[in-house]
Amino acid sequence: MQSEPILELDGVYTDIGQYHILRGVDLHVPRSTVTMLLGRNGVGKTTTLRSIIGHWRARQGFIRYDGMDITKMPTAEIARAGIGYVPEQMGVFADLTVEENMRLAAVSGPINSARLDWIFSVFPALKTFWFAPAGNLSGGQKQMLSIARAMIEERKLYLIDEPTKGLAPAIVSTMARALADLKRQGAAILLVEQNFAVAKALGDFADVMDDGHVIWSGAMSRLSESDELQQKLMGLSLAGN
């Protein structure tokens, strides 16, 4: 019997002001897997991640993480329960140094040096610019810092919003390797990603959203192999993307 998913969304509705953005999202993220959240722009992918972390509150429905109902839980407690969040805008603190950003992310105490060594091996740029203000980093380095910050403490689940957006191919492959490392360590990842090569390489499962709800769920391999399915769900062939 398959174990209980690490994250479950059950009929989640979220409004932003007068706009109904999520209209009954049902989503399951199995443990130790990468689940891709796909769909065109504006269908509610970012809102789904923000509703999970508690930045926006679900008006209706349930969000369960590791057996706990986190629908109404404060953001800080959701994060402390073991969810790492990397927003689309990266959320790097520009006036803090790289070291301060990382120290801040180590919520439970001092930075674990073994884990930091691992992060430096994945993102050597962070070691080079350790004492530099994060605002001086390039876009790719800021994205590395944003992911490294989520990785500095062990998490059961990572919510990552378009980590490769606008990045050079060399940095995209670094990101992909970092996420693959996290998966190997047993973490689950819910990843919003537009880069199909990355999605195909990393994804175990895919959930396709449209108009504020999930319209298809299944194995990533099934989606990536079927042009017809891609056309039907997203109106484009991902192979050409």
Partner: peptide, 18 residues
């Protein structure tokens, strides 16, 4: 650190667990 970071981006500080 929390105060300085909170001045810049409150949401992200909360998402880190504070």
């Amino acid at each position: 650190l929390i105060v300085r970071a909170g001045v810049e981006d409150r949401e992200m500080v909360m998402a880190l667990g504070y």
